[in-house]
């Protein structure tokens, strides 16, 4: 399986760079004894099929006008938490993984085109993505990890990421920066298409 190797390599790289910052992210999985809260914060950032759609959703939120952006800011972390809570006891249907991979291409394209969306659609997109990423992360929780600490950390990571995305896109108004954000979107879409075609 080439894809898993690429995935491991990429997530390994991200994990390694995070380890330099916090003496934490050596493995995102069982972390007995210390900070399940931090494990929750780091877990979605250590795999590209979570990290890239989350970056895309944060940039998309930044590109929207005020109301849809606020809607996304609230729905995304809440649906992450809801999804993770639902995901803890169940075995994941494979459709969730497909949605996560597909969302990378779809959201990347939306960011690349910088499309303004109505609030309801923006909220719907972020709720759907939040739920599927939440489900996937919740289902990976081992018995040693306390969901009471993991899920708040997990939702906080989502909230921070979306807020930072909004802040970057709305504060850095220079035209070349705005084009830069759209380029990032197109890269995310490209990675999404690549991973889907390899699967």
């Amino acid at each position: 399986m080439k894809t898993t190797r690429v995935r491991r390599l990429l997530s390994g790289g991200i994990a390694a760079s995070l380890t330099l910052l916090a003496p934490a992210a050596a493995s995102a999985h069982p972390m007995p004894g210390v900070g399940d809260f931090y494990a929750g914060m780091l877990h979605p950032l250590t795999a590209i099929e979570f990290l890239l759609p989350m970056i895309a959703i944060s940039l998309l939120a930044g590109q929207q006008s005020r109301e849809p952006a606020i809607a996304m800011l609230f729905t995304f972390p809440l649906s992450l938490a809801a999804g993770a809570a639902l995901g803890v006891p169940i075995h994941l249907p494979s459709i969730v993984a497909w949605i996560n991979l597909g969302s990378m291409a779809a959201l990347g394209l939306l960011v690349a085109t910088a499309r303004p969306l109505p609030s309801s659609v923006a909220a719907g997109i972020s709720a759907l993505l939040g739920l599927t990423i939440g489900l996937a992360n919740g289902a990976e929780l081992g018995e040693q990890v306390s969901p009471w600490r993991f899920i708040p950390g997990f939702a906080l990571a989502g909230l921070l990421l979306v807020t930072y995305g909004i802040g970057c896109v709305r504060r850095l108004r220079a035209p070349w920066m705005q084009i830069g954000f759209r380029v990032i979107g197109s890269w995310i879409a490209a990675v999404g298409v690549l991973v889907l075609s390899l699967r």
Binding site: R66, L73, L160, T163, Y164, I166, G167, R170, R171
Partner: peptide, 13 residues
């Protein structure tokens, strides 16, 4: 991280 969060959030008024 906290200041960036507050600064970003303020853009939404």
């Amino acid at each position: 991280a906290v200041l960036a969060f507050i600064y970003s959030l303020r853009t939404l008024e």
